[in-house]
């Protein structure tokens, strides 16, 4: 899922400073699962903003909305009948959701209420970690199912570097060395032969480096 994290309330308050009639919009997709932008978080943020503005003597009217997904046009369009009645929308979906609302409602300022983190997994209650950088050219079959681009701090294709110590990365003892994970897994699979192969320079054209990306499926059009 796409994992996000709430922005500090002070930052959101400063964004909404010019406005007194707002929508706080959540999303039932990834950000609900990672507890950053679902219906519950909409309620919490809206209440916090109301209270803070009350205390400032500048009350704010907030409509609470949670769309099924902010990244699909049919759900986004459900806001059209009433969005014009409000001065701005604070979206607590991922960056894609915020932008998609902005694209659809050209006259309404869109304010991001969370920071979009990464594509990741739930490690345990309250803890998420990154697994994929969406580089667009998956090599997981060569690396034991562990991604060198994401899990190695230097995205090395021939790791580990000299900074791998007792299974952790030189940047932080809390960060596992991605290449130690790859080697352990290749060993478990009996495929250490894959380690000793030279890998060509990666083409980053399929990654963000090739410019904003799109996928077109003729079979679905």
């Amino acid at each position: 899922m796409i994992v996000g994290n709430a922005k500090p309330i002070e930052e959101v308050l400063s964004m909404i400073e010019p406005f007194d009639k707002l929508i706080v919009a959540g999303c039932n997709g990834c950000v609900t699962v990672c507890r950053a932008g679902g219906e519950k978080e909409v309620q919490i943020l809206a209440s916090a903003l109301r209270l803070a503005r009350e205390a400032q003597g500048r009350p704010v009217e907030i409509r609470e909305v949670t769309l099924e997904r902010q990244c699909d046009p049919e759900y986004v369009e459900l806001m059209r009948p009433y969005v014009g009645d409000y001065q701005a929308v604070v979206s607590i979906a991922c960056g894609a959701g915020v932008q998609f609302l902005a694209e659809h409602f050209s006259k309404t300022p869109l304010l991001p209420g969370i920071n979009t983190g990464f594509i990741g997994v739930t490690e345990k209650q309250g803890e998420w970690s990154e697994r994929c950088q969406a580089c667009g050219d998956c090599v997981l079959h060569l690396t034991g199912g562990i991604c060198p681009v994401t899990r190695c701090s230097k995205s090395l294709f021939h790791g580990p570097c000299g900074g791998s110590v007792e299974g952790h990365c030189e940047i932080d003892k809390e960060v596992p060395c991605g290449w130690q994970l790859i080697i352990d897994r290749l060993k478990a699979l009996g495929r250490l032969d894959l380690y000793e192969k030279l890998r060509p320079m990666k083409s980053w054209k399929t990654s963000r480096d090739g410019g904003p990306r799109r996928i077109v499926r003729e079979d679905l059009i």
């Binding site: 230097k154 995205s155 090395l156 294709f157 021939h158 060509p200 320079m201 990666k202």
Partner: peptide, 10 residues
Amino acid sequence: KNVHDIDSIQ
């Protein structure tokens, strides 16, 4: 930003 377009072996 850390570049790491290619690694040392590459």
